[in-house]
């Protein structure tokens, strides 16, 4: 088994940390994992993306041009990466910021209004956590419980954020499951 997902958005959306969260979850479940960031000036406010490779065997190439899934947090990311994913995978679209729809028919489109949900839960900056919960729920690459259990570890120094982030992850997962039922 090997599965790859690209998280993409603009700098400041917490793209790299959402990916790190997923990678930590995979590691906790004893899987092989590689987290490959885009780096350099483009990190500072421009497009940010990272690819997470999760496998049950040692990972060969950590550089994956055609990931299985895509989590697109803004419009340019969807435009740029929509056609790079494999057939049969998920494209999770942050519909709060992306008015477009996925044009391909060989992938599963999951619409999640990440920013709206985060705002509703009074945790404006946690749209990335909503997306993470949503992605984990529909892909099943790691269990949602593992991700939730990891929140207090990541926020060990900011315990006041633990509950709010868990709420975002759970809500993202809920919305994604509902969307998934329609798709499949």
């Amino acid at each position: 088994m090997q599965r790859e997902v690209k998280f993409a958005g603009f700098g400041g959306q917490g793209i790299l940390s959402a990916g790190k969260f997923l990678a930590d979850g995979a590691l906790e479940e004893g899987k092989e994992v590689a987290w490959v960031p885009s780096y350099g000036p483009e990190m500072r406010g421009g497009t940010a993306y990272c690819t997470i490779v999760i496998a049950d065997h040692p990972i060969g190439s950590p550089v994956v041009n055609t990931p299985y899934d895509l989590v697109a947090m803004n419009r340019p990311s969807l435009e740029k990466f929509e056609n790079t994913t494999k057939a049969g995978g998920f494209i999770l679209v942050n519909s709060s910021l992306i008015p477009d729809r996925v044009t391909r028919t060989d992938v599963h489109e999951i619409l999640v209004p990440c920013n709206d949900i985060a705002m509703k839960l009074k945790n404006n900056r946690a749209a990335n956590m909503v997306a993470l919960g949503a992605y984990v729920a529909c892909s099943g690459v790691v269990s949602l419980e593992t991700i939730i259990a990891h929140v207090p570890v990541t926020f060990a120094r900011k315990p006041q954020f633990v509950e709010a982030n868990i709420a975002c992850i759970k809500e993202g997962a809920k919305i994604a499951r509902q969307a998934l039922e329609k798709v499949l």
Binding site: A34, W35, V36, P37, I59, P62
Partner: peptide, 10 residues
């Protein structure tokens, strides 16, 4: 190389 330096692995 830059990939080994920048990526995260266990």
């Amino acid at each position: 190389d830059g990939l080994i330096g920048q990526m995260m692995e266990p």
